[in-house]
Amino acid sequence: MSEKINRRDFIKGLAVASAGIYGLQSSNSIIIPDKQALAQVATNTIMVVAQGNIEKGPEPEIIKKVTRESVAALGGMGRFVSKKDTVLVKPNIGWNRTPEQAANTNPYVVEAVVEMCKEAGAKKVKVIDYPVNSARITYSRSGIKDAVDRADGSMEFADERKFKEKSIPEGEMLKSWHIYQDALDADVLINIPIAKHHSLTKLTLGTKNLMGLVLKREQLHTRIDQKLADLSTVIKPNLVIMDAYRTLTSHGPNGGTPRDVKLVGQIIAGTDMVAVDSYAATLFGLTGEEIGYIKESYERGLGEIELGKVATKNVEVA
């Protein structure tokens, strides 16, 4: 996407956008990072659901294409990433599982995202996670290390010195926590979670993927819903790209049997993490209201939970 914005379009878009925003005022909670205020002009769509043709192969091309189309329909990566930006991409690389087991973000989604950031002129695209299992093992077995290398991004191991204690002014349970400095410093933070089952919270989605950017995650499990909402008042991704190409429907968050894996074929891109999470919940026959941390985030005004109020664009990718 290389849409040039001229003055006429700008004014036109501004009118459309303000109307759009006004229409969504009832929730008065859509996160529009500063950088996007201008880009919002081009489109007021805040969530795109791209459906891939799962029958068609080969898979890598399909997944990359669906990912690209989802971001294109949202206004293109240029809407988020400017030239010379430092981008931090946070996939879920938590587990020592292979892509078929749907416990980590699909490597081709990551590859497509890194490529798009590069194309948008990003100076550096860092891909990082602070995994549950040993990082060297998860990075290689998830296929993400290879994918990032192919896309010419830089795959980094989390550096424990860079977890800095940050205060969480709006925190209810957490007043401060150790958060990865690079994620806060990056010009653009892109969260690419995978949608999967989790016994405690029912589902692991975008908000929960933020746990890979903090220390001592085990301690977050008591009152997890409040704590996740607390974290997402500080860590605010500019873009969320949910990998629901394969979902893990049971025995999450790591799974391991092919029986539990469901081929859905969707990639959901959006700027409102709560809305994206809320939509992803419907893929499991649940609603956002039923997932504690989505509800909590919504009640704190961090995003929209009612899908009817979210400007959604559906894209079929042939």
């Binding site: 016994s199 499990h221 008591t222 790591n254 799974g255 391991g256 049997t257």
Partner: peptide, 25 residues
């Protein structure tokens, strides 16, 4: 924690690598 402090936790279940989980709840 859940047995003695009446708070949810379930970290052990989450971490269990057995594909169908050796820790249930």
């Amino acid at each position: 924690i859940p047995w003695s402090e009446y708070e949810n936790c379930l970290v052990c279940e989450e971490q269990c690598p057995v594909p169908t989980k050796a820790i249930k709840f």
